[in-house]
Structures are given as C-alpha cells and as structure tokens.
C-alpha cells in the first residue's frame, strides 16, 4: 500500500480500487484468473497480451509502484461521438497534453468510448484525477484512472464484437454508446439460432491502436 501518511478525508488522486485489485492479483500470481482464486503455478509464466506489469518479479522484492511517476490517464465512459478535439480542449485545463490515444473499435476503427491522455508531468495527471475525473464531457460523466502508460504489446483486449467489453452485454439503452449492448443486439437479431455463447468475463478495457 502507498505511504503511511493518511489525510483526514479521502484523496481523489489515488488509483482506483479496480487498479489496486488488479495489481494485488497480478503480484500474487493470480492475474487473469478471477474465477478460481487459487495459486495456479502454470499461470505465472503464461504471457498474455493484457498483463503488463510485475509478473516476472521475484516475490521477495517489494514491488515498485508502477504509478509512482505515471503521466498517463485512462479515460472511460466517453460517448462514441466525442472527438479528439473535445478531449483536448477539456484535458488541456490540467496541463499541456503530450499525447492522446483514442480507443478504437477493433473492426470499424471508430471511437469506442475510451481514450488515454498522456501529460508531460505526473502532477498534471494527478490534478486531472482530482479536478476532472467524474465531471462531464459531452454531457457524460467521465471516469479517469491512473495508468502505467503505453507499451507496445498492450493492444487489443476488446470484446468479441470489437468494442469495449462493457458494451457487449449492457442491457440499458445508451445512445452515446451505440444503444443496447452489441451482444444483446445480436441475440435479438439471431434469437432463433443463438446457442450457448461463451461468456467472457474479462472486463479489462485496453489500449486502442493509433489508427
């Protein structure tokens, strides 16, 4: 856990429970194995496009916090129609943006509702968590989380239909994100022939490719 000092109220510039859980799982050799909470030795050396940190570390070394100097933020719950220009305009309020990577649908190459914003400094990224996370962009409440940053090989990781996994089985109608979940839409279309669908529980929303 980070630092011994504790403020009298919660801080908003900490990584989310989502990230911390992931880190704990990864560090204890349980990454990507949420169903069975057992220490499966075979899993430890399996390379997976979606595991990007600490999986080769010796257990006795104290794991170095990969977010200590993080300058990148994951930004989620964007509308599919929100443009780079809008993201730029809002996020520049916390500092100059070094790079912006829009998450794209694997097949259509259109925005699929998330992006990564990279700043020049760690402080700008923290300020962004504190001041912009949970506010609105394009009429939607956006979610921000610190991220260890872009590395080659951390691409893909989408749902079956090419978008984010959360948009597969969503049963509310979200106009900004293509209506109902895609899997549900498909189910409705192919109700007759539809059979056992592999349910995919991997929730990670991951990097998009640049173009």
């Amino acid at each position: 856990m980070r630092g011994g000092f504790r403020n009298t109220v919660e801080r908003l510039d900490r990584p989310s429970a989502y990230y911390l859980n992931r880190t704990i799982l990864t560090n204890s050799g349980l990454q990507n194995n949420k169903k069975g909470r057992r220490n499966d030795r075979n899993n430890r050396d399996e390379k997976d496009g979606d595991t990007e940190m600490a999986n080769n570390q010796q257990p006795e070394e104290p794991p170095e916090d990969p977010l200590r100097n993080a300058t990148t933020l994951y930004v989620g719950n964007l509308s599919f129609y929100t443009t780079e220009e809008q993201v730029y305009d809002l996020f520049s309020k916390c500092g100059e943006i070094k790079r912006l990577i829009m998450g794209l649908d694997r097949f259509n190459k259109t925005p699929c509702g998330f992006c990564f914003v990279e700043y020049y400094t760690h402080q700008d990224a923290l300020d962004c968590l504190k001041y912009l996370g949970g506010t609105k962009l394009d009429e939607r409440i956006i979610r921000t989380d610190l991220d260890p940053g872009f590395e080659e090989g951390r691409q893909y990781g989408r749902g079956k239909s090419g978008g984010q996994v959360r948009d597969e089985y969503r049963d509310d109608f979200d106009e900004g994100r293509g209506g109902l979940g895609r899997a549900i839409q498909q189910t409705e279309r192919l109700r007759e022939s539809e059979k056992n669908r592999d349910s995919e529980h991997e929730m990670r929303e991951d990097y998009g490719r640049l173009r």
């Binding site: 919660e10 908003l12 989310s16």
Partner: peptide, 28 residues
C-alpha cells in the same frame, strides 16, 4: 485497506465512481 472511517465517514465524498463503489461493497 482496513480504513474504517474512510469508508463509513460522513465525508466520504469519492462516491462519483460507480465502479469503484461497487468494488468496495464487494470487498466488504
């Protein structure tokens, strides 16, 4: 994470994050 009043305190405040909240609930 055994931070008692951080979760229960009157001034929680971080509650905008839907995902985070659910996860905390799960954990408890």
């Amino acid at each position: 994470m055994a931070d008692y009043d951080r979760r229960q305190g009157g001034r929680g405040g971080g509650g905008y994050n839907r995902k985070r909240r659910y996860r905390d609930d799960d954990e408890s």
